[in-house]
Write a protein that binds this DNA or RNA. Sequence first.
RNA 1: UCCUGGGUAGCUCAAUGGCAGAGCAUCCGGCUGUUAACCGGAGGGUUGGUGGUUCGAGUCCACCCCCAGGAGCCA
Length: 433
Amino acid sequence: MKVCMTTTRIEQIRQTLGQEIWIEGWLYNKRSSGGIQFLQVRDGSGIIQGVVTKKNEKNFLLAERLTQESSIRVKGIAKEDPRSPTGYELSIQEIELVHLAEEYPITPKDHGTGFLMDNRHLWMRSSKQVPVLRIRHEVMQAIRDYFNEHGFIATESPILTGVSVEGTTTLFGVDYFGEKAFLSQSGQLYLEATAMALGRVYWIGPTFRAEQSKTRKHLTEFWMAEAEVAYFDHEDNLRLQEDLVKYIIGRVIQNKLPDLKALDRDISKLEKIIAESFARVTYKQAIDLLNEKGMGKSWGDDFGAPDEEAISDHFKKPVFIEKFPAVMKAFYMEPDPENQELVKAADLIAPEGYGEIIGGSERISNKELLLKKLEEHKLPREPYEWYIDLRKYGSVPHAGFGMGVERTVAWITGVTHLRECIPFPRQLHRLTP
RNA sequence: UCCUGGGUAGCUCAAUGGCAGAGCAUCCGGCUGUUAACCGGAGGGUUGGUGGUUCGAGUCCACCCCCAGGAGCCA
């Protein structure tokens, strides 16, 4: 169904060459040279250069008045033109001014990040931010399509919770009618319940971490794509994750190639990801590898950002790190039968220094073991009663994972900072806009 | 929370302890193929705050506020 009958979107311009069309958008930039003016018009789907000459005096005078980011409708005929920065050019027949913009704070010159973040609501209009947000959309849609096509049911987890998933992470507390509640840091526990009802479930939702982290790889509010599958084990889990990640990248290459190019992304690196198997190392092998590289690691150490980067640089492809010592990880993870000190968990580290994008594990299905682990982690039993119930009534082996959407988007787009991968980032000391 | 670097025009940045500057943006003028267009002109400042040193502080000292980068933790 065609919803907008009268206007053409710039991304469709190729199909309208030679025809009279209307474009509705904003003036991105303007250049002029005496009797000719070049209007860079953007509409969210792309940018096209429009040309106005003195021959049409009414348009010419109006174009002279136009300010950066003024909203306009323009009528014209598009054609290919190598002199245009985008390859296509619109010879403008008519300009309708919708709103004359006031002095726009973001100029075509350099700006600092603090200023851009203060103006995030405007910054997102710029030529780099638009493709990133369009790719984010494609990633989200690809995740939904992948799961939907594989028999998963989308089930939503609550945002307001009375229980923390891991107990260790700092949570945002809220007052819930006089009771203490928290903003969810993961939907996993709830997904385990819905997986027992529906078999295979997923959801994409916001998660909140009140950690005082202040780096390019952290947000206090970020989106996680989580999946949970009944009768799944650790191996199944890793296979699913690899297949999903490859599918997402394939979809972005297929549908958002112009945006990747606009971001100067090295597409051959992404194509290589799809073509090859991901690397796999155990925690122990990773420790040994880091020691070979002289990073002085010993058993029980966690991996920091420099460690992850060294590991991913070594393989130059996504790498699963699996079989972590149980003491380092969450209470609900299934021990490795070959070594009870380890758990059947894995982190997926993205290449090119983008860090961990997925964390997953097989979950404990035995009630007594779960109770023992809760105790070892010094967690109270009472808020977990419903979770323990899942191990009382038809418990099955099951596994799942959570993927950080922004980190995945950052990796695919080649953007170095997570704040550019979400429309309105929430960071330490940054709550507006 | 800790470490490091910053805060000067709307923005990005200059300025030996000695008259507060440039580019972009804005306004005025010029140019019929611009590519962050270019050329000429104009307006625009409580140098983050408080206190101190000094004949004199944007610059030095103390405390505070704010921003950025990184660490830890994590996705």
